[in-house]
Write a protein that binds this DNA or RNA. Sequence first.
DNA 1: GTGAAAGCGCTAACAG
DNA 2: CTGTTAGCGCTTTCAC
Lengths: 337, 337
Amino acid sequence: MKKKGVTSREVARLAGVSQSAVSRCFSPKASVSEATRQKILDAAKELGYRPNSIARSLTTRSSRTVAVVIHSLESPFYSMVLERAARFFQGQDYHLQLFVASPGESINDVIDSLIRSQVEGVLMLAITLSVDQASMLADVGIPTVIINRTVDYAGISQVGCDNFHGGFWAATHLARAGHHRIAFVAGLAGSSTSEQRRDGFAAGLEAAGHTLAYQDIGHYRYDDARQAARRLLSRESPPDAIFCANDLMAIAVMETARHEFGLRIPEDVSVMGFDNVAMAAWPSHDLTTVAQPIDDMVIKATELLMHQVRDEETQPQHIKLPIVPMVRGSTRPPLKC
Amino acid sequence: MKKKGVTSREVARLAGVSQSAVSRCFSPKASVSEATRQKILDAAKELGYRPNSIARSLTTRSSRTVAVVIHSLESPFYSMVLERAARFFQGQDYHLQLFVASPGESINDVIDSLIRSQVEGVLMLAITLSVDQASMLADVGIPTVIINRTVDYAGISQVGCDNFHGGFWAATHLARAGHHRIAFVAGLAGSSTSEQRRDGFAAGLEAAGHTLAYQDIGHYRYDDARQAARRLLSRESPPDAIFCANDLMAIAVMETARHEFGLRIPEDVSVMGFDNVAMAAWPSHDLTTVAQPIDDMVIKATELLMHQVRDEETQPQHIKLPIVPMVRGSTRPPLKC
DNA sequence: GTGAAAGCGCTAACAG
DNA sequence: CTGTTAGCGCTTTCAC
């Protein structure tokens, strides 16, 4: 019973009209008389006709497709961003092509594939782009918005939050609580986001007369952060406060501190994260963190992308949203002086 | 500097060959002499040529695209499945079109969109399909695999695990631990998965001489499950064991029990989940659960789908994988008798 | 091995 | 409002 490939021509024949009438009938601004429209619709229904959007894309030279490139779905922050972005694009009648790009070479393949697919825009989630890669996209004229990473190239839009300030605030918060041996768990080595958070954190510590005692790396992942926590907490004089480049790692650090080292949080060690994922608010984690305005980020990024897609003239923008401190129970309260 | 739309014809002209030579040069089984191949490649590089895959799809009548339809990305189980599926399809040089389908009417729109896009296959993640919807896909000849949901229609493949047995085991485990007032928190009302788990659970209780004391519903979501937990634990004689249709809800129940009702787990109330997401193993949750063989499920589902895509003759299959009991600390140990 | 020619299914002028 | 006519950029016979 396969009705594979019903074409507009077949519908036209059945309806006794020209093929282009059928085409018009399925176009937004149809100039078709009610009479023929009905004939066509009937014929179409009978045959189970659906316009072939590949053919349409070829003639209109518009794929109505955007690509989303994501590094991993482990972090709930990006699942959330992806889900919202997907809903947004669906609402705009755009298709979404998903690519997962592990850090490294594979990004070039993804970009190549993207371009061949004629996607009209690209949303990069936490993807670190080289200038070459960024300019390749710009050269072929595909608007691109990077969320949560920066690239030193003006031709591409970026949406993120004030990571430096977030890190700075984290430092201030920990310093006020009277911490002394303070550690930072980085995300990825080359990640601008992680670096900005660390730089802000270091600056904040310095401003408070402290220095960053230890640094380790957790690749934004739970397992790696547990390892990092083990290393940090096994030191001769272990940190009494740990700031992590995202919430997932912060939670991993808490798990390790509590269940492997028998430490109390925040009495023995304060822990802070970044993002404010839903989980961070769960009572057992109760994580003090730097909230990224996820709604705003997605809205800004998707709308900016669509503007650039629809209007060639729209210039790439760099948008930096304010962070929101979220004080919860995983950090000691400020000392009263 | 926009090099928009370099065509094979332009490459051909620059290389001094015919357009079809260029086409061959970019086809797998090229029958091109090394000499011209080199000329073409040089010209292509100079112009920044990339074959337009939309045009290719139109002529070959093959989009090399599959669709993945997902209900939500809140549950880490499906994020995981999606990520793995994405990597698999990328490895097969297939594009992945992502659709998010909130339960309800929107699925029809998604299916319509799918068909127009000429996707070659569909992977449905936890999507409840009506027979009409399922047969629509089958009628147009698009192979479809449903993960973790059943539909009473043979034309569509299904991959899932033995939910009934999982529920049964959960009941047995709780009964052995000496529980009496046992509750179940369902996922979604019409969800076959949730119903099978409940049926198996009820059967297991019955086999052990118990009955299902309470039922509530959490829509597979954290927030709703917290509400359900509040209702259950506020009862006059609250349950002493709660089995939830997925891990996310089980964790929500634990959070509520511990932090809102001051209950100890498992001393005051045992909690069980289903899925075995990564989080379930984290020490603070330490959740006893029924593990779904996620790797196998994804492999089976994606490979089955690709077989059906490549070979029309491959018949739809219903695959039921065995579950794996994961006993952790959120349930009381069995009574010694 | 290579070029010419005929489409894939649709949209978009252009006449009528 | 409707039909005719060109393509969109590529793959694919089919001769040469």
